[in-house]
Design a protein around this nucleic acid. Structure first.
Lengths: 87, 87
DNA sequence: CGCGTCCAATACCATTTCGATCTCGATGCC
DNA sequence: GGCATCGAGATCGAAATGGTATTGGACGCG
């Protein structure tokens, strides 16, 4: 699991749409799909249901999105602190 | 910044010794040194003072170690939850 | 139905990143 | 001074990541 995967996942979860999330992240759609799959494999849980057209978060996906966002916020706050640190 | 860099940094901070930390992490010493440098570059702050022989945490390094540990704990707890999730 | 469109997944290749080995420079100890 | 220790630098091979092209399946519309 990587912070990048968390960022990718949160983007997809917010957009509910892989292609749009990929555009937002400035990458192309296939690598994004693969990172999401890799994350699901590692977690041992599906994050999205694959519908005919598009995707939808599972219950676990909703839980995980909340936790992932919290972690990313934590990271962002530490990064901001480091910029403000009295050197 | 990556979770791996945080793990690497915490190991070095705990060991206060790059080579021992590398052994604990099951990698070799040079890549570990480089990851620490990359992290310092990104943070814009030195995490360690390079002494003649060995290293020592800076004040910022001590602060950052605490935050990094918290983030890693958060990640570990989410991972553990995902294993326990009622599928 | 059947065709076109939309969307994610797959296949394949290029590039970047990461780790291992070897070596050097600096420092402390005898 | 000579030697051991420790972190940093250089170089190479392996793994991970991203891009392009394409496929496969589902929906909408005629």
């Amino acid at each position: 699991m990587s912070l990048q995967q968390l960022q990718y996942f949160v983007a997809v979860a917010e957009e509910q749409h892989v292609t749009r999330a990929a555009e937002r992240l400035r990458i192309s759609q296939p690598p994004l799909s693969r990172q999401i799959q890799a994350l699901e494999d590692e977690l041992g849980q599906p994050l999205f249901e694959r519908r005919g057209r598009g995707i939808a978060l599972t219950a676990f996906g909703r839980y995980f999105a909340a936790r992932a966002t919290a972690i990313l916020d934590h990271v962002a706050s530490v990064l901001a602190d480091s910029k403000r640190w009295p050197s």
